[in-house]
Write a protein that binds this DNA or RNA. Sequence first.
DNA 1: CCAAAAGTGTAATGTATGCTACACTTTGTT
DNA 2: AACAAAGTGTAGCATACATTACACTTTTGG
Lengths: 211, 211
Amino acid sequence: MPPTASSPVLLTKRGLARQQKLLEVAERAFLQNGYAATSVNEIVRQAGGSLGTLYRQFGNKLGLFEAVFKKKSQEIFAPFDDDALWSDDMAKSLYTFGHTLQHIALSADGVAIYRLVVSENNLDQGEIQKIFYRHGPQTAIRVLARYLEKQMKAQRIELLNAELAAQQFLEMIKGPFVLRALFGESLAEQELETALNQAIMLFLKGCEKTV
Amino acid sequence: MPPTASSPVLLTKRGLARQQKLLEVAERAFLQNGYAATSVNEIVRQAGGSLGTLYRQFGNKLGLFEAVFKKKSQEIFAPFDDDALWSDDMAKSLYTFGHTLQHIALSADGVAIYRLVVSENNLDQGEIQKIFYRHGPQTAIRVLARYLEKQMKAQRIELLNAELAAQQFLEMIKGPFVLRALFGESLAEQELETALNQAIMLFLKGCEKTV
DNA sequence: CCAAAAGTGTAATGTATGCTACACTTTGTT
DNA sequence: AACAAAGTGTAGCATACATTACACTTTTGG
């Protein structure tokens, strides 16, 4: 019987310590090797404790994965709850937002999570992935889209579709690098900078109001 | 001993037929389920013939995968050998190029191959993936980049980096949809159209020469 | 302080996998 | 015709995996 909200598992001090250690080891394993290639026995061997504890706490392998996955995707996208980056200086706002996003999306953990999302979409009929998508990228997109809509209403720019434009901006600054990051190439900071600057230039000139 | 160029396997008529059937079945299996989740025994069961034949012809599972993978990625990116799409009407050229690319990259086979590339990069130290990247996306990028460079030399546009701009254009028109396509959502033609039009608008206005 | 629950350790179960072995039949070449 | 190579079918090997079982010790709450 997997643990649920209606029948939670009571943890001792030791059990809690074990749970955290399990999550920590499991995170490293899943991010490094993916879901299928990760062995539950190996996780327990590294984390200490017992197989029974893992199964009592997480139900099964998928339960453990979900726990790791939700925790990690929330951590990764936390920086976007900050509304302080936005001003009426569009170039500056786009720069700080873009710079943050680049370094999140292209970090080791970022690409590892991306690989998980793309790889394992037959686990829960893709439900886990959709949860990630809504908590993660979609949040970032929405923040930017709202900002762009405000600038549209203020007659400073014109666009066919603000939400789409937000996605397109994101893709311009990270898209060209994700495969390379996945292949393990190290990206020069200057490359990211150039992509960001060119994206901002194209974007601002491209949608400025032509009176 | 896996078959190589220096010691090829001689095929009978029956053997050739079996090879093609094996490739056909294996392609479907790999694209659908990925590398690890595909069973060699199951492939033989569906294709007919014998396990021994498969191993004599392809050496091992990875050899079969390579054969399928190279064949399929060449097929997919074949349309870009055509130079006839390019004229000095930039909007029109970008539109036809972009439309083609969208429908290749977001097709069922396109996203399936993409998933393989992202998922299984620990097989051959990622060599297979790099081969794909150079044969596939990089070809498309280069064609567009050359065109943009020509337009730059003709003083019609200005850019920091033509190759990068080409990648960014590609990402603008396909990036927002790849995850959704991977999740199995069906994309309305009109959405793609909007993305393409907005990308062209942003791009052309964004880099036009300001005299 | 004492039952009940939680944690531990190890072993076992069942299943699926890639791959090899082998005895046999079919095919191609001289 | 005959000989070697290629194809077939089945059976089996070795291994790895998730999951369960069980006998035992530790912790917790009344």
